[in-house]
């Protein structure tokens, strides 16, 4: 047990021990969600602000429910309805939230490093819910949690991340978490979306999907973000499916116990065949459940003080 951080800004700066502490804590919080009374008083009286400058539904709802299950009060702050439209800076918005005595600010922002910036200008605890193409720490934690729960370990596993990796904060955070915990990570996708430069993060890069999935214990599919000008990156969605989609034929060639993961929302028939998404090796909905547990654990840990560890009974 070792956790002394006030913020969760990225996975890159965490040690393997800290990652394990987070995963172990999440395990206990997952059990809370399975009870008749799904609420514990750990954060009673705390105020949690969801500051989502970039649109998101599932991550925001997951954080919102996590905070509620810890008995915190939650307010949601979205870009469309906020003073950003009126020209207020991020710093001023955060200072206003701080003036309302917000204990925790959960931020999603299109700019990489926005959470780190906030952690320097306000005294609240900051949690990164996705910053640009940089990191999405709680997504990596829930993916790692799901793998560990299903496989019993992380070290030594072959994990293939397949898809739109270039601008993916999910991929970056996952690469950090998995390699720190001893997994071997392979990245695969069109060469325009999976450049060789990722080899510097300790991954294997291949553009041959059959090779990438052959000995994978886990296949994590990333969505083609076609809203982000992907037209220039490959000829068509149909061609992407032909070359890199997890079709029934390719699925049949994976290891018989390989897990199929996807952070959602899935594009059925594009990166993943519809039946494959619903098969018993697909853990896509478990990821959603585990996301709640991981976010409860994150809120719980960053809200801890820096006093003595010992519990006086």
């Amino acid at each position: 047990m070792s956790w002394t951080r006030k913020h969760l800004l990225d996975i890159e700066s965490l040690s393997a021990t800290e990652l394990t502490t987070l995963l172990d804590t999440a395990k206990a919080f997952k059990a809370v969600g399975e009870r008749a009374i799904k609420k514990v008083p750990a954060l009673r009286g705390k105020t949690v602000v969801n500051l989502f400058i970039e649109p998101s539904t599932r991550t925001r709802i997951s954080f919102e429910l996590a905070a509620m299950r810890l008995s915190a009060d939650v307010i949601n702050f979205s870009a469309e309805a906020s003073s950003f439209k009126k020209g207020e800076t991020l710093k001023d918005t955060a200072r206003n939230l701080e003036a309302l005595n917000a204990d925790v600010i959960i931020i999603r922002h299109a700019a990489s490093g926005a959470p780190h910036f906030l952690s320097r200008v306000v005294s609240s605890n900051i949690i990164n819910a996705g910053d640009g193409a940089h990191e999405h720490p709680t997504q990596a934690l829930l993916d790692t949690f799901t793998v560990r729960e299903r496989k019993g370990k992380i070290a030594g596993l072959n994990v293939t991340i397949l898809g739109d990796i270039l601008y993916s904060r999910v991929a970056r955070s996952n690469i950090w978490a998995l390699t720190k915990l001893g997994a071997k990570v392979t990245l695969c996708g069109p060469s325009t979306l999976v450049p060789r430069v990722f080899e510097q993060m300790g991954c294997r890069v291949t553009h041959n999907v059959d090779e990438a999935i052959a000995d994978a214990d886990v296949i994590n599919l990333l969505r083609i973000q076609h809203e982000r000008q992907r037209k220039a990156m490959f000829p068509s969605l149909a061609e992407y499916t032909n070359l890199f989609g997890l079709t029934k034929a390719r699925f049949a060639r994976t290891k018989p116990d390989a897990l199929i993961m996807h952070p959602g929302p899935i594009n059925r028939g594009v990166e993943i065949d519809s039946d494959v998404a619903d098969c018993d090796r697909s853990v896509i909905l478990e990821q959603v459940t585990n996301g709640l547990a991981v976010r409860m654990a994150t809120l719980f840990l960053v809200c801890g003080g820096r006093g003595p560890q010992e519990i006086a009974g």
Partner: peptide
Amino acid sequence: LDVAMHRDDLAGRIPPAVHPT
């Protein structure tokens, strides 16, 4: 029974290890 989530002094110290209930 683990009581870490039900304690009233989380802010005062390092978060306690949470064990299974």
